[in-house]
Simulated scan of single mutants.
Amino acid sequence: MPEGHSVHRIARQFDRNFTGRSVAVSSPQGRFADGAALLDGRRMSRAMAVGKQMFLEFDGDRWLRVHLGLYGAWDFAGEILVDPTIASANGRMGQTNQRGTDLEEAIHDDAGENSLASIGAPRKTRGHVRMSEQTKGVDDGAELEWPPPVVGQVRARLMTEVTCADLRGPTACVVETPEQIDAVLDRLGPDPLVGDPRENEERFVAAVRRRGVAIGQLLMDQAVVSGIGNVYRAEMLFRAALDPHTPGRRVPEDVVRGLWHDWTELLRIGVETGQMMTMDGLTGEEWRRAMASRDDRHWVYHRAGLPCRRCGTEIALEEMQARKLYWCPGCQK
């Protein structure tokens, strides 16, 4: 399932390509036909993400709410305007600069996350981008038929004169009123990239410290904090040297605040690079390998049975609320 960084990147892509423009909306598959008819021809005025959900505002108090879930993905085609503040395909922006590398070519991720090429170079490109946790990059320079042919089960197609976005396999794709959107937002926990930072931190600390539920469950509860999924959960707990089974109310307040600050930083890195980079201090070739392979990017995730990178203890794997939990019994006591 796409975690928070991916959804923020998708929202930014919509903001660059669709906000301020009239949008033709259709449902080639047919399952979203009624909703598409309500939006077709309206101007998109806003695109935003909160956690794992994206909200597209249209004139006339209409909103499109999308939750990609386990299988959803957006495909962009046509003229794709790219934000130069996000890491580019040549790796010379954002997190890459902070790690001291100067890469001359794109690094293509082999594990299914958004690669540095997932949004493309900092220019206008005519090609194709898939944006989800299964992103493979940009097909740049291809001569595309316009409008692009419908391929597979496209729930919703959003199109301007030059850019097309196709949605496949979402958990939620619904048109809602401002009141319904407010109700959804009220149920979501704080997102470091949305709202007042100080207020967000206090909400998170209060939500964790009043609960007797295991911290490993609380970090995955979207009513406690928005955007954290299985990967970030495992990595944040390891980075905090925190036993996943510790009840929230027993986690010291300074540790809870540390978790929030760590999530804020990891989310920023994820949005900039498109990848869930959770290891610190990597430079040069180490950074290049980590960008290209999840095996070199995480402390404990997907490392069940392997020795801990810090203490050598075998990484444990168990289920917590029907999700896989990776952790180090040696470091996380």
Rank of each mutant, 00 (worst) to 15 (best):
A240K: 03
A241Q: 07
A241K: 12
A241R: 14
A241N: 10
A241P: 00
L242A: 00
L242K: 00
D243R: 07
D243F: 01
P244W: 00
P244M: 05
P244G: 05
P244Q: 03
P244T: 08
H245M: 13
H245R: 13
T246A: 03
T246F: 01
T246R: 03
P247E: 01
P247C: 03
P247H: 03
P247V: 00
G248Q: 06
G248C: 08
G248Y: 05
R249V: 07
R249F: 11
R249P: 01
R249C: 12
R249G: 01
R249N: 12
R250H: 12
R250L: 11
R250F: 10
V251T: 04
V251R: 03
V251E: 02
V251M: 03
V251I: 00
V251D: 00
P252V: 08
E253A: 08
E253W: 09
E253I: 06
E253P: 00
D254V: 12
D254L: 10
D254H: 13
V255L: 08
V255A: 11
V255K: 11
V255W: 07
V256Y: 01
V256S: 05
V256K: 01
R257K: 15
R257N: 10
G258M: 08
G258V: 05
L259N: 06
L259W: 09
L259S: 04
W260N: 11
W260P: 05
W260C: 11
H261D: 14
H261Y: 14
H261L: 13
H261S: 13
D262V: 11
D262Q: 15
D262I: 09
T264K: 15
T264L: 14
T264D: 15
E265Q: 14
E265I: 05
L266D: 06
L266C: 08
L266A: 13
L266H: 07
L266I: 13
L267D: 09
L267K: 09
L267H: 09
L267R: 08
L267N: 07
L267E: 08
R268S: 12
I269S: 09
I269G: 05
I269N: 06
I269Q: 09
I269V: 15
G270P: 04
G270H: 02
V271T: 09
V271S: 02
V271D: 01
E272K: 07
E272M: 12
E272V: 06
E272G: 07
T273G: 04
T273Y: 01
T273E: 09
T273K: 00
G274T: 03
G274F: 00
G274C: 02
G274H: 03
Q275A: 11
Q275K: 07
M276C: 14
M276I: 13
M277N: 10
M277P: 02
M277L: 15
M277S: 10
T278S: 14
M279G: 02
M279C: 10
M279N: 04
D280M: 11
D280L: 12
D280Q: 14
D280A: 15
D280E: 15
D280S: 12
G281R: 04
L282Y: 04
L282T: 04
L282F: 07
T283R: 14
T283I: 09
T283K: 14
G284D: 04
G284M: 07
G284F: 04
G284V: 04
G284E: 08
E285Q: 14
E285F: 08
E286G: 06
E286T: 01
E286V: 04
